[in-house]
Nucleic acid binder design. Structure first.
Lengths: 207, 207
DNA sequence: AACGGTATAGTCCATATGGACTAATCGGAA
DNA sequence: TTCCGATTAGTCCATATGGACTATACCGTT
């Protein structure tokens, strides 16, 4: 399917751009400002060059389209964009594909941040798949560490793996809790709920 | 200083390459094999194109140098490389620069994995600086979340930040423990200790 | 009235990245 | 013997990235 193919090539910043345009039509600089105001640049590195390039790629792919230009005073004219149906689908497909994966931490953070674009049941399923994969990975790390200790590998060569194992454990605990609360419908979910207010502290470190 | 300038431009893969050459001289494909055997490709994404390109960059920068070529049968000839003094210094400088930083998770993982190239005291100091920065970031996230909750921002827009806050907490706990054990000299440290055995389970997810 | 700084709205270019491709050799099975 | 696949040892190219740069307008100060 061509849709899936397009979705495959989306970058995290591309997804965030499309998701932003679902709120309302905007011109590029406005998107930049909004993302930075919302601290989305903590979730994904956002530089001018990359952003404008991303927009033009999305346009060429037909995921967003111009709907007009305006100009204020003598400043450069601004092109307003809107998201196409293909773009809307692409976001949903991308989140679907990235939410269960445990490699690509950056894409997961974006997928999680945009997961409210999917119905609650789907998110529960996808996150459960992720939990299964994460559990396996965690066991691999624990076993690997135990083996290394048994073989007498010095601690200085194990620190990095120990950190990773600790973080995997923490993520599993968090994920268990989230899945449970989601499945129990402890809070509202989906596009039916209230819109995002302004200064929500954004994501985290890059990469 | 030109050394610091060079260190600034090192990529994580470049650092791992130089660090590997400190063990012994090798030809590129051997480094590739070794890194993959040691699962260092879980710590940093390693593709052929990027790796060979990295090696040639390091060579142009004078951080590593050819020391000869050999050929086995009729196969393509292999160039053996060695790390220069500038290369050795560059690794140390880079780890020094990246170990205390809390943005750039990928570079931190590599810095941590190679931190045994620095003396124990230096690592304790650098990690303590990191802990301070991490504590501040953690507080920022907690405050941001509390503010968002108070303002009635729906949970679906907070999940990503909640995850990040949980992971920050886990990392802080792990770091506290590591610093304490390092400072108390609970295990050996530095190039004096035994060398790395073969299949130590490598790092973690990419990005 | 001139001046400096900041916000607006981008462009441009070098380069790091990753994925596809090449090509020879070796070992084992049919 | 011949064919198949894996291993060895890379090359090549399109493109995503980031940082430097441009240029105008607005606003407050001295």
């Amino acid at each position: 399917m061509s849709l899936k193919d397009l979705a495959c090539k989306l970058t995290p910043l591309g997804v965030m751009t499309l998701a932003l345009l679902r709120e309302r039509d905007m011109h590029p600089y406005e998107m930049l400002r909004l993302m930075r105001q919302r601290h989305h640049d903590k979730l994904v590195p956002i530089t001018n060059g990359t952003f404008y390039h991303t927009v033009s790629r999305l346009q060429k792919a037909g995921l967003l389209a111009e709907i007009g230009t305006d100009r204020e005073g003598n400043r450069p004219e601004r092109t307003t964009y809107t998201v196409t149906d293909a773009g809307t689908d692409a976001v949903v497909d991308w989140v679907h594909a990235e939410l269960p994966r445990i490699d690509h931490p950056l894409e997961f953070r974006v997928a999680l941040a945009e997961s409210h674009n999917l119905p609650r049941d789907a998110v529960v399923d996808l996150l459960s798949a992720r939990r299964a994969a994460l559990t396996g990975e965690h066991r691999l790390y624990r076993d690997g560490l135990e083996g290394a200790r048994a073989k007498g590998v010095p601690e200085q060569y194990r620190v990095q793996t120990e950190r990773q194992t600790a973080l995997l454990g923490a993520e599993l605990a968090w994920l268990d809790d989230l899945i449970e609360r989601l499945a129990a419908s402890e809070f509202s979910w989906g596009p039916d709920a209230e819109p995002e207010r302004e200064p929500v502290k954004g994501g985290s470190a890059n990469d």
